[in-house]
């Protein structure tokens, strides 16, 4: 309906324009005019595209940009998939036992894990394993107490300077938003932690750095930490390096986007509702306009209608 109407509109617009701008007014002229305009539009459009492509040439500088990670089928990166919550649970274990030695997770609190990967009782036990400073008490002194679900994850270092001092100048980034903050997202994180290898011939890696083709520049301060069996899963999942990497990537993806499951479900609902509304409003527009479009104009010609006018 729209397309036909739009086509008609443009046809009539082109026709009237050609009438206005040329002495000839027949169908052939307007068709060639349309063709001319279409050619000009195509030429301009392709010109701009070519200029843009010329300015922004495709390049693959692996040394500078890092190897582009392949695409992995994480369920939560698909259009309508939720997180694999069992994987979040395992990934938390990996994070706690491996990553948390150097990396912080500032934006995640213990309570965030409740009804995501742990029960409330389990979270209380997990939090109570750590000591937090609280206070001041009646005497105005700070004191230590076991953690509560409302506390954030403990930090491995009190500040950035301490972290750099402990890691030979390198600062382990906070992992709260890491899958959002890196190009490639979950694919990059997975590729990075599984992608350590020997440097190719001719590439020199300084002492204290490690070669990783997925890391921009190729030399990363973080050493390989994920190996087969580096953790032992409580649910009996074989702890291969790729399984561990997958689980911790899923966990970090959840830390970045804890609202993802609800967001996607809400998106489905919104798309369904609004497409229904669009269809209904199109129908109602037709219905309301039908009385207007059914109008009939009757012309009563004058009595001298047939008499030719003299020049």
């Amino acid at each position: 309906m729209f397309s036909r109407g739009t086509a008609k509109f443009f046809k009539s617009a082109v026709g009237s324009a050609s009438k206005r701008f040329s002495t000839e007014s027949n169908a052939k002229a307007s068709a060639s005019n349309l063709l001319f305009k279409a050619s000009v539009a195509t030429a301009v459009g392709s010109g701009i595209s070519l200029w843009y492509l010329n300015k922004n040439t495709a390049h693959a500088d692996m040394q500078a940009d890092g190897l582009h990670p392949p695409h992995y089928n994480f369920p939560h990166t698909t259009l309508l998939g939720t997180f694999d919550h069992a994987s979040i649970r395992r990934g938390f274990q990996v994070f706690k036992e491996v990553c948390a030695a150097c990396h912080s997770l500032d934006h995640v609190h213990w309570r965030n894990l409740i009804d995501v990967a742990f029960t409330e009782d389990e979270v209380k036990e997990l939090a109570a394993e750590y000591e937090y400073e609280d206070g001041p008490n009646d005497q105005g002194e700070m004191f230590m107490r076991p953690g509560k679900p409302s506390d954030p994850f403990p930090k491995p270092y009190p500040n950035e300077e301490a972290a750099r001092a402990a890691n030979a100048g390198a600062f382990p980034p906070d992992l709260s938003l890491i899958t959002k903050a890196r190009h490639g997202g979950a694919d990059y994180v997975y590729s990075l932690i599984t992608g350590y290898c020997d440097p190719p011939a001719g590439v020199e890696i300084r002492e204290g750095l490690n070669y990783n083709p997925y890391f921009p520049g190729g030399a990363i301060a973080m050493a390989q930490n994920i190996f087969d069996g580096v953790v032992e899963y409580e649910d009996g999942t074989p702890a291969t390096a790729s399984q561990i990497a997958k689980d911790v990537t899923t966990f970090l993806g959840w830390a970045s986007e804890p609202e993802l499951d609800d967001r996607k479900k809400l998106g489905v609902k919104a798309v369904l509702l609004f497409s229904t509304l669009t269809a209904l409003s199109l129908w109602i527009k037709r219905n309301r306009f039908s009385s207007l479009k059914n109008r009939k104009i009757v012309f009563n010609p004058p009595s001298n209608w047939n008499t030719p006018t003299k020049k």
Partner: peptide, 11 residues
């Protein structure tokens, strides 16, 4: 559609 993945399935 997401059977087995959500928390309520493994709770």
């Amino acid at each position: 559609r997401n059977k087995g993945k959500q928390w309520k399935d493994i709770k």
